[in-house]
Nucleic acid binder design. Structure first.
Lengths: 283, 283
DNA sequence: CTCCAATGGACGCCGAACCTACCATTGAAT
DNA sequence: ATTCAATGGTAGGTTCGGCGTCCATTGGAG
């Protein structure tokens, strides 16, 4: 009913011609016509099913230190509303995380879902490293986002509350033991991202950080690195508070370079897995 | 079966206590305990159903100039595989965009889906402005991403091919008429983003640009702005090609400031709608 | 002329997820 | 002691979307 005979005949030549000179080509060799950024634009639409994504988001809130151990999460109905998923899905996710030891649910009024007082340790993936992440891509995004974030934060005029919060987060992570370091570290970086004042930016930083943490969880947390990070955190926060944009950027760059060196050193010359595996069959 | 009696009794005090001092509070007033970045982390998991997202992604490839008019898209099976959705969904989306005049499909071998030679003009949303976007957030993300992008691009050592492509994109947009300006402009910016070498960054810039374009489509495209943009594009590309990081950043900031001024000027002191409207009912 | 491979087109089955409504539990307010 | 409101817990029906399979069309290869 659409694209009748006239259209077909009219377009016929144009199409074949275009397909020849610049159209889609399967072999990977791209004719110069246009289409070379297709790999990024043809990325998967869904990263997982609703259940998995909901679990991921709850874990995000837990691991990035948004809620403290023992603290209460919003009620299921509220979570479902905010996440835009059904309550069933939220419940499934909460039940899973409950079985994993992250959450505890209590019924009745003033009940709810609570973070466990002691969070389970991230299991060391001994044999199979499931996530299959593009490490270079992750670290590039991280560098780009965090540097840009600190740059904007440093040139903003912060409120007294923001300054207080920032400083509190800094002292929290300075005083953290190994057990809680990763979480409080993430919370500090998230707080800096929030200073930009854009929910989307906060979300992007949070997403990236979760993925980077998945990599960091595979390698040991050295005392020496913590001392280093603490100094760098201090420099970063100070630069933000004094509005020294250049210094803030430089401090953050040094901070990130440390992590990059750690990761590359630990992974050796591992060829940084790419290309997230597409199904190979043809239906 | 999980969280038996012992757990409940053990955690009982902790939970109520935590809920009182720092837990989730519905009224918007956040106790200082932690949780204030929740708004970003509690964002919707799904932006729309699979069909809508697929349409959006195809429109992205069309409007951002990834494919030229008359050019061929990948076959349905390939699109389905890359997008991670079923072929049915891709077909629905293609059919929709075909009815809207964007795409034309031809059957048989060497057939496929092709962009229309002349793309339909974006309809002016006269009465209802559907998207309901957070303009401040969009522009903040744009500023952050594009400046960071150009910063990284300028300090990279570009290959000859990259330089050629960049220059071609620049001359293309310089020579564009009003009809094609927005598309070629987007393609130039996307090309710059690609220089970072991270698919995720390209995707983020593409997503942001699509949203910003939705706003820009609501206001007239002035000849004066085009001339201005052309000069700024020239400065940006030149700075990238000469590896002048500082100048590239500055040029991009000026470029973006122009758009911000245009938007704010056109929208007047419109209070930049926020808070994407959540359903209000309680089940 | 015949064949064939690549593409779009169509159908049925099934699980995932959503929606609605209702039930169960609990502790504070009265 | 009773009530009640807020919360988690459960169940049935419905829609959406994915999967597998097959059909239809077409232009080039042999």
């Amino acid at each position: 009913m659409v694209a009748g005979g006239e259209w077909a005949s009219i377009l016929h030549f144009a199409t074949v011609g275009a397909a020849t000179i610049g159209g889609y080509s399967e072999g990977g060799g791209m004719s110069e016509g246009s289409a070379e950024s297709t790999s990024a634009l043809l990325r998967p639409i869904r990263m997982g099913n609703s259940f998995e994504e909901t679990v991921e988001r709850l874990l995000q809130m837990i691991h990035l230190g948004v809620y403290a151990p023992g603290e209460s999460l919003p009620p299921e109905r509220e979570l479902a509303r905010r996440f835009g998923v059904s309550r069933d899905t939220v419940r499934d996710a909460i039940r899973s995380l409950g079985e994993a030891g992250y959450l505890v649910t209590l019924r009745g009024r003033y009940g709810g879902t609570f973070l466990a007082k002691t969070l389970p340790k991230a299991p060391q993936p001994e044999g199979g490293q499931l996530p299959d992440l593009d490490i270079d891509d992750l670290l590039t995004v991280r560098e780009l986002l965090e540097v840009a974030t600190v740059r904007v934060a440093a040139r903003r005029a912060l409120t007294a509350t923001e300054r207080d919060t920032l400083w509190t987060r800094l002292t929290d992570v300075q005083a953290a033991d190994c057990e809680n370091y990763r979480r409080l570290d993430s919370r500090l970086h998230l707080t800096i991202a929030e200073l930009v004042g854009s929910p989307s930016v906060t979300a992007m930083v949070a997403d990236n950080r979760m993925l980077v943490n998945q990599i960091l969880d595979r390698m040991p947390l050295l005392e020496r690195n913590i001392v280093n990070s603490n100094e760098q955190h201090h420099a970063i926060v100070l630069a933000i508070l004094t509005g020294d944009k250049e210094r803030a950027v430089q401090a953050m760059e040094e901070h990130l370079a440390g992590t990059v060196a750690l990761i590359h050193g630990f992974l050796g010359a591992s060829p940084s897995r790419r290309a997230p595996l597409l199904p190979d069959d043809d239906l």
